[in-house]
């Protein structure tokens, strides 16, 4: 998956400017950067929810049109996990079955059980989704976002405000999913430790552009750009 020269404005204010980035199969890319630099906006553009004023997004070599219906096949191979997932007013089971029903898939029961098992939620399958704790809810949302086997996983601060147990379950699940399915994942986070822990490569988004992208190890140990160095060392970047 590749994005080229993305520009996006909100109310005339530039958020992203000629941003380019790509991620390939089996790669877990972390995008780090200070709050408010447009990380979430970037994910939403990658997912086709927002259209960029300029630039193109390529999915497996083909450009997105940013018209809902035309992009449907491509959108159906991507998933976005947001910071605060919305639970449908139904059981956990039905929430996870939802994407499969949208695609009229078969063997729904088996697929849903598998997905729930990976996030240790199988015994809560019949609970109303609205009654889950925030950690359980995020785990359910993960199962819901991966049950249909997307090729690209977009993660937006997916462990923010969660306790260590839930964080580790979710991080394990992400690593397992990327490794076993060979999927590409883009993870937006301001948690440097998380990026360090699980991502293969890391990019720093700053001032509407990607300043530096390299393997996670290199970014954290031998950053080339001084702003990257400052950010990973916990200093203010301006």
């Amino acid at each position: 998956m590749r994005a080229e020269d993305i520009c996006k404005r909100f109310d005339g204010k530039k958020v992203l400017e000629e941003l380019s980035i790509s991620v390939s199969c089996g790669e877990l890319l972390a995008i780090i950067g200070p709050s408010g630099v447009g990380k979430t906006t970037l994910l939403r553009i990658l997912n086709g929810l927002l259209y960029p004023e300029d630039g193109d997004v390529y999915f497996k070599g083909e450009p997105l049109t940013f018209e809902d219906e035309k992009d449907l096949d491509k959108r159906r191979k991507m998933a976005l996990l947001s910071q605060k997932p919305y639970p449908f007013k139904d059981t956990v089971w039905e929430n996870v079955a939802y994407p499969l029903r949208l695609r009229s898939e078969e063997e729904i029961d088996d697929k849903v059980s598998d997905a729930l098992e990976h996030v240790s939620l199988l015994e809560m399958a019949d609970r109303r989704a609205g009654t889950l704790s925030s950690g359980e809810l995020q785990r359910m949302a993960f199962a819901r976002a991966t049950v249909f086997g997307p090729d690209v996983l977009l993660l937006d601060e997916f462990t923010a405000h969660l306790d260590p147990y839930n964080i580790s379950v979710l991080e394990d699940a992400v690593e397992w999913y990327v490794d076993s399915k060979g999927a590409a994942a883009v993870m937006v986070t301001h948690n440097l430790f998380q990026a360090k822990r699980i991502s293969h490569s890391t990019a720093l988004l700053f001032d509407g552009r990607i300043i530096e992208k390299d393997s996670t190890e290199k970014i954290f140990e031998y950053p080339e750009d001084e702003r990257t160095e400052a950010f990973v060392n916990g200093e203010m970047v301006f």
């Binding site: 997912n47 219906e69 991507m78 998933a79 947001s82 919305y86 949208l102 976002a145």
Partner: peptide, 21 residues
């Protein structure tokens, strides 16, 4: 709901039905 349904792969008609539900 609209955003959740769309990120999970709903088309326009399915999105409307989900929102209604």
């Amino acid at each position: 709901v609209k955003e959740t349904a769309m990120t999970l792969g709903a088309d326009r008609w399915q999105t409307a039905k989900t929102v209604l539900n």
